[in-house]
Design a protein around this nucleic acid. Sequence first.
DNA 1: TCTCTAATGTACGAACTAGTACGTTAGTGA
DNA 2: TCACTAACGTACTAGTTCGTACATTAGAGA
Lengths: 221, 221
Amino acid sequence: MTSVEEPARPNGRIRDAARTKAEILDVATKEFARSGFAGARVDEIAARTRTTKRMIYYYFGGKEQLFTAVLERAYSVIRQAEQELDVEHLDPVAAIRRLAEVTFDHHERHPDFIRLVSIENIHEAEHIAASEKLGRIGSPALDVIRRILESGQRSGLFTADVDAVDLHAMISSFCFFRVSNRHTFGALFGRDLVAPDLREHYRKMLGDMVIAYLTADRAAD
Amino acid sequence: MTSVEEPARPNGRIRDAARTKAEILDVATKEFARSGFAGARVDEIAARTRTTKRMIYYYFGGKEQLFTAVLERAYSVIRQAEQELDVEHLDPVAAIRRLAEVTFDHHERHPDFIRLVSIENIHEAEHIAASEKLGRIGSPALDVIRRILESGQRSGLFTADVDAVDLHAMISSFCFFRVSNRHTFGALFGRDLVAPDLREHYRKMLGDMVIAYLTADRAAD
DNA sequence: TCTCTAATGTACGAACTAGTACGTTAGTGA
DNA sequence: TCACTAACGTACTAGTTCGTACATTAGAGA
């Protein structure tokens, strides 16, 4: 998330459209993630900014479009991370494990993103649906998974009946749930899924699970 | 969810505290699930009821407590279902698979519950924390898992290093994500995880995954 | 140096929203 | 049948909250 932190010139206002816009997005991201769409207050977002509410409407048009812009930027970050994925030189098993770890790490490092996605799901993805940008950008991770999967299946290492989207769902669900449901799970079962000393445990567990699934002999059950 | 649907006596108001309360809870469940906590409108809830807003405050005290009551009832439903779980006569592999299926089915049948839990997580489980009822009722499912796991590990069928809470998290994460993130996942990857014709596929996939994980030879990777 | 516009600030309003003061009545128990 | 209370309805308010009309200015280009 491109943060904004230039020391403003001593006094008198400075004009910098890009900075103002980015600062609004930064603050809005935190506010929406904290309070949900309806719970977030436009006035509050403005107050935490060096500019005024007027600018939110000037640049984004309204609360709804602001949220869409926040989502767009949040998704662009994860796509960037996926694009930097470099696992194709590894053997299939190591590659999948690495991919799972990178996904795991990204979810852990971006709890605000998780919350935004949860919120967007409450709203049935209407902002994604309305967004030009978000509509037409398939996940780079998916292509990577597809290639690893093919390679693993060709060599007979992986069972044949697995599809890239499904595997992505499997990996994401664990990573996502661990962060998104941390609070209710913790309150009900007394275990903090995001506790630092359990991090390695769950990271390994995810990898073990995915590899076990991919290499299992389905006849065995 | 105990629905209310008695044909009101022709005209003249009827007094029935239990019915009124239950009706408010029914409507509030839908409203909160649809719009989130902040997005839900007390007036709207009242309007969809045969009674008035006054009664919401009379019986529940306020919006916050109403949401807590909604959550309490929603959780009681899943606990009931878990209590009816009868798998201990099966062998460990079949028992775990059955447990996974029951969890899968319950999530699918109660999307409103999933949404409420998502919403409660946005609010960092503050209502659960504040609730007497919800605090002290460990999941019956957890005990069942514990017993199956022990049995499976004793017989050498399952790998030893698995814990009941972790397994519950693994199963829940897949079931939960499939419903909770249905919309964003569908919008971004073009696959409806809850499409009826994929139901059996994902139900089997979950079972395969869990069993593969439990029976895998960890040295293999 | 002058002009013109993108960028910015202030002040306000209309609509909404949680919550309540006050009054009414059904129906139960004496 | 009478009194009393739990259950209910109406009308209102105080405070928010999104959005905008109007005024101003920094600074790029002529």
